[in-house]
Design a protein around this nucleic acid. Structure first.
Lengths: 192, 192
DNA sequence: AAACGCCTTGGACGATCGCCCAGGGCGTAC
DNA sequence: GTACGCCCTGGGCGATCGTCCAAGGCGTTT
């Protein structure tokens, strides 16, 4: 058996590297994150990075997907609790208001989207995470009688991400300003 | 007077570097474009890059903004010619259909958005270009009686960009699929 | 012809890159 | 105790990075 003490510390360091990686992707950009940056901020030696991960790219991928997955999964139950479709939309608008397009989380999302366009594996994982969220939202919209719930959910999700991207250089794009517009997306009702 | 022959060739090389830069931003990503890459593809020596531009970053900025500006300005007249607001939206949907989120133009836009989040100067220039387009679209929507034309235009523009980003890993997100949903955004009419 | 202006070359500078590996520390299993 | 397994260090590999600069080509102006 492996020594449990050392193994625990190893897992701790691995986790720290993942957290640091998510930070640095946002700060410097995906392809500008280096082995030595990661090691320095995590308080370890550069060599240790390649002990825990097969490559820097693999570390970044696991960090980005992991962070996004846990965040999206945390949003799920909140979505379930939303009574009306409008409340579900308000939930996403609240998320929009917490970010200005230049904060770590917004940038992590955007960087990962972009990196996925150039990496097959990352693209698959990302699709999995986003699809899971979209399906949850679509189910919520369907229960509220919104027509074409799948496509509506896809457009709402894309619109929120697009607004996040645009907010970085358009400060006026706040949640209260766009809420009335986005609400129109829910207007295709089957039932009143 | 400067020798006009050499000056002409200089301008030609400068322009070629700008075109190559726009290509490489899309292919490799903003921060992964190097002096030597640019020089090789443009068929010149690495040293020449820093003769025509103060830095690689300055070259990338000028290339990205220039490409985006000329593209957006080319879209302006087409927008002017659109009769109804729905036709204006169809025009943007057609643009969406030409790109799949992994083509050079989509990636150039996304890369520039992201780079702008970390660079004040780029952010200002980008805001100028995007605002110009948004204003044109808003004017078109206002003429068609759409309520809150400014915010509507902002949301439509952001939604199109967001859809482009999502299309990279969600192939089903085609223009025909999302057109009926996006059309709801124009439903806030003052006049019939 | 000589001087000037602009474009261009090719090489050099120190810094940083991803990745690899020999070796040491240390707790557990024989 | 000895051997084993895992974590970790520190240094080294060749490659690439952005930027700079001395030197030369070449058409235009005196």
């Amino acid at each position: 058996m492996p020594g449990p003490k050392a193994a625990d510390q190893g897992r701790e360091v691995r986790g720290r590297l993942l957290r640091v990686a998510a930070e640095l992707i946002a700060e410097r950009g995906w392809s500008a994150v280096s082995t030595r940056m990661l090691a320095e901020r995590a308080g370890v030696t550069p060599g240790l990075v390649h002990y825990h991960f097969s490559s820097v790219h693999a570390l970044l991928t696991e960090a980005a997907i992991g962070t996004m997955r846990s965040l999206v999964e945390g949003l799920g139950p909140l979505l379930e609790r939303a009574g009306t479709a409008e409340e579900a939309l308000d939930l996403m608008l609240a998320a929009l208001d917490e970010h200005d397009g230049r904060d770590p989380l917004s940038l992590l999302f955007a960087e990962t989207y972009l990196a996925a366009a150039r990496d097959e594996t990352l693209r698959r994982s990302l699709a999995e995470v986003v699809t899971a969220f979209r399906d949850r939202l679509a189910a919520r919209l369907a229960a509220q009688g919104v027509a074409a719930p799948d496509q509506t959910a896809a457009v709402v999700a894309a619109a929120i991400d697009g607004l996040m991207l645009h907010r970085a250089f358009t400060p006026g794009l706040t949640a209260p300003a766009v809420a009335p517009i986005l609400r129109r997306l829910l207007d295709g009702r089957v039932l009143t």
